[in-house]
């Protein structure tokens, strides 16, 4: 993974959020809260329950398809962070060796099941978080956070982060290119040069911050920034929230997979 490709990757996730679909049009507050509730429901499952989790895939799949977001992008990002979850659960099979069920002569221990359950929960929650970002503009999320009463200082920090992330990346990009243009083979790409690059970048950032502050003062800044409100709650927002939360509730209290299996079994018999 080179720096260039990562840069365009971030820009790509950003550009996805400018689409205009049903999911993109929903009020960001609703999306944020529903996704939060979704994550709470998912993590509330006991550690041996996998089948109960499966129906929950409907929510990320819905965001993915209705939001017209390519699966590849999200899948790749989930894979990148997956080692974290992997290391949380990797020792479960060693510690928990109770055999819970036997499938075609292979005994499956509680450890393996709880490990699988961690991985499923991880996939559900992380993909939902990523899809939330891809389907809501960053500004929309900031607006939502502000209107949900997050302290304004944090929201403004996030806004500045969004504004200057791309500027900073471009600056880094230029410096790395300048380095590569004059370094041959291993020389010039060692850690010493890298540390110097980082420190130069820091100094430049501080200088830029100073200039930005002057620009703000020149336009009458006195410690107050207004966050623009673009969205308003509509009927479909309420409907979406009500509908999804009740589905999560049903999924949580009735094991849909078991019920389906039993009815299917009965009709076949």
């Amino acid at each position: 993974m080179t720096f260039d490709s990562e840069y365009f990757n971030i820009g790509y996730l950003d550009s996805l959020s400018y689409k205009d679909t049903f999911v993109h049009r929903l009020d960001p507050r609703v999306k944020l809260l529903v996704s939060f509730v979704f994550i709470l429901f998912v993590v509330s499952f006991p550690k041996y329950d996998i089948s109960g989790l499966i129906p929950f895939f409907i929510y990320p799949v819905f965001l993915l398809t209705a939001g017209d977001i390519p699966l590849r992008v999200i899948a790749k990002k989930v894979l990148v962070v997956s080692p974290f979850a992997l290391f949380i659960g990797i020792f479960n099979p060693l510690f928990d060796t109770n055999v819970l069920l036997t499938l075609y002569g292979i005994s499956i221990t509680g450890g393996w099941i709880s490990f699988m359950s961690i991985m499923v929960k991880f996939t559900l929650t992380v993909s939902t978080a990523l899809l939330l970002i891809a389907a809501t503009s960053f500004l929309g999320l900031c607006e939502a956070l502000e209107r949900l009463k997050l302290p304004k200082v944090f929201v403004i920090q996030l806004l500045f982060l969004y504004r200057y992330l791309f500027v900073l990346l471009e600056e880094t990009f230029r410096m790395l290119r300048a380095r590569d243009a004059r370094s041959f083979g291993k020389k010039g790409r060692d850690i010493k040069t890298f540390i110097r690059l980082i420190s130069v970048l820091l100094v430049r950032t501080v200088e830029r911050a100073e200039r930005i502050y002057q620009a703000m003062l020149s336009r009458g800044f006195r410690g107050e920034i207004k966050v623009l409100r673009r969205h308003s709650l509509r009927f479909q927002d309420f409907l979406f929230a009500l509908f999804s939360v009740s589905i999560f509730y049903i999924f949580r209290h009735y094991n849909i997979v078991n019920i389906l299996g039993e009815t299917l079994g009965r009709t076949l018999r």
């Binding site: 500004l139 504004r163 200039r211 930005i212 620009a215 703000m216 336009r219 009458g220 800044f221």
Partner: peptide
């Protein structure tokens, strides 16, 4: 450095 707000509208509106 001059354009520090998230959108053009907000930036022009800042002053």
């Amino acid at each position: 450095d001059q354009l520090f707000m998230p959108t053009v509208y907000e930036d022009v509106a800042f002053g």
